[in-house]
């Protein structure tokens, strides 16, 4: 283990990580922990490699009718039909609380395709989109 984030010990993936909100240091919302990627460590133990964010991986984790439907919608909404999850290496996680806090600013992560598309083609074109409410 290189670094462990502040938070519950032992850290339970299902209870403390999955489905929690991920935020950056300023509180901007990055997404939910839709799935986690595990890796085998030096002593053969399983450890968390990364948090995965995306509707498609969420669908694949859930399986069943709901999961298949979610994954299918994600594929349909993706411009090339091949949605990739946002992968956040676990060493960037600084704290696991009622939110999962990562040490990097939101701007450093790739903008999800749906958000980018709606921003460029719909919302961003409406007057006043660049300012918060008055």
């Amino acid at each position: 283990m290189t670094t462990t984030p502040d938070g519950p010990d032992p850290l339970r993936i299902d209870f403390h990580l999955l489905d929690r909100q991920i935020v950056d240091p300023a509180g901007a919302k990055i997404g939910k922990v839709d799935d986690v990627e595990l890796e085998v460590g030096d002593q053969g133990e399983l450890r968390i490699a990364a948090l995965l964010v995306g509707q498609h991986v969420l669908g694949e984790r859930l399986k069943g009718a709901v999961g298949r439907w979610l994954a299918a919608v994600a594929t349909r909404l993706h411009p090339e039909g091949r949605p990739q999850p946002l992968r956040i290496p676990f060493e960037h996680v600084t704290k696991v609380d009622s939110e999962v806090i990562v040490g990097l600013r939101k701007e450093l992560f790739e903008t999800p395709p749906l958000e980018k598309w709606l921003r460029d083609n719909l919302i961003g074109r409406i007057p006043g989109a660049g300012h918060a409410s008055e």
Binding site: A28, K29, G130
Partner: peptide, 17 residues
Amino acid sequence: YFGWQWGKSVAPKRDAR
């Protein structure tokens, strides 16, 4: 549900969804 940015304290183009 999806963990998107939401609310009226940020500019709409930052929470387009």
